[in-house]
Simulated scan of single mutants.
Amino acid sequence: MSSGSDTVHSNRTNAILGALLGTLLFVQTVRIIDESFSAPESSHSEAAHKADAKDTAKSEQSSAAEAESFNKALASASVERGAGLVKQCQICHNTEEGAGKKIGPDLYGVVNRPIASVEGFNYSAALKSKAGGKWTFAELNKWLNDPKAYAKGTSMSFTGLKSETKRADLVAYLNTLSKSPAPLPK
């Protein structure tokens, strides 16, 4: 008979120990989750902030170098070659004053025009997020290099011009599509 009571006693002990271990496991899980949401500022987050600041500084230096390089290319750009390159743009965009939109907004007066600002054109959310800026030479260079990287989620299907010289030629031509073109860099 002792084996029967030993079994009951053993089952009861196992049940109590199981409940205790389960409770401890639950409490520890809650603590881990709580710490992950309310971790105080630590040296790790300070290091991450410093790394982000360094990345931002490198990115700004890289952008400045890219802009300088593009300005040099723009100073020697060929409007004639740009006129040839714009033909691929004209599949989706008008380039003549007052011609209005096609699939994309018109490109007449695009240089220094506010981004996502053509009245009546339904821009993608990606491009609307850039509103507030202008289509400067530098911004057009970034856009024409890789529209999908410039505005992730853009609906423009153009894959970009990888040649800086071709981008400069095209931007120089687009600059002529205005009553008062912007002065090109010297």
Rank of each mutant, 00 (worst) to 15 (best):
A75M: 07
K50M: 15
S155G: 12
A126S: 07
A39H: 08
Y123V: 02
R12Q: 12
Y150F: 14
K186H: 08
V27E: 02
T7H: 12
T136A: 02
T165E: 15
T154H: 04
E68V: 06
E139P: 06
A39V: 06
L21K: 03
Y173V: 00
N145L: 15
G133L: 09
K134Q: 10
G160C: 07
L184A: 00
K87A: 09
D55K: 15
D55V: 07
V171Q: 11
N145G: 03
K87W: 07
G22S: 01
W135M: 08
L85K: 10
T176R: 03
A51E: 13
R81I: 07
Q61E: 12
R12H: 14
R12P: 07
K50E: 15
G104Q: 12
T176I: 01
M1C: 15
F137D: 02
G104P: 11
R12I: 13
A75F: 00
W143N: 00
T95D: 12
D6Y: 05
N122C: 04
E35A: 14
N175C: 01
S157E: 02
F70T: 07
L17V: 11
A99E: 08
G153S: 00
Q88K: 13
V27D: 08
L21V: 05
S117N: 04
Y150V: 11
A182L: 10
A47Y: 09
T56V: 09
S38W: 13
K152L: 03
V30M: 04
E119L: 00
Q28V: 14
S43R: 10
L107M: 09
A126Q: 00
G82K: 00
D52F: 13
V171E: 03
F26V: 08
T165L: 09
P185H: 03
E164V: 10
G18H: 04
S76L: 09
R31I: 13
L184D: 05
A15C: 06
T159E: 08
W135R: 02
K148P: 11
T154L: 00
G4D: 15
G84H: 13
L174R: 03
E119D: 11
K102L: 11
K186M: 04
S178R: 03
L177D: 01
V171S: 04
V30T: 03
E60W: 05
S2H: 14
P105F: 01
N71C: 11
T23M: 10
A138K: 15
T165H: 04
S62V: 07
E97V: 02
L177R: 01
L107R: 03
K101P: 09
A99W: 01
E97Y: 03
A182V: 11
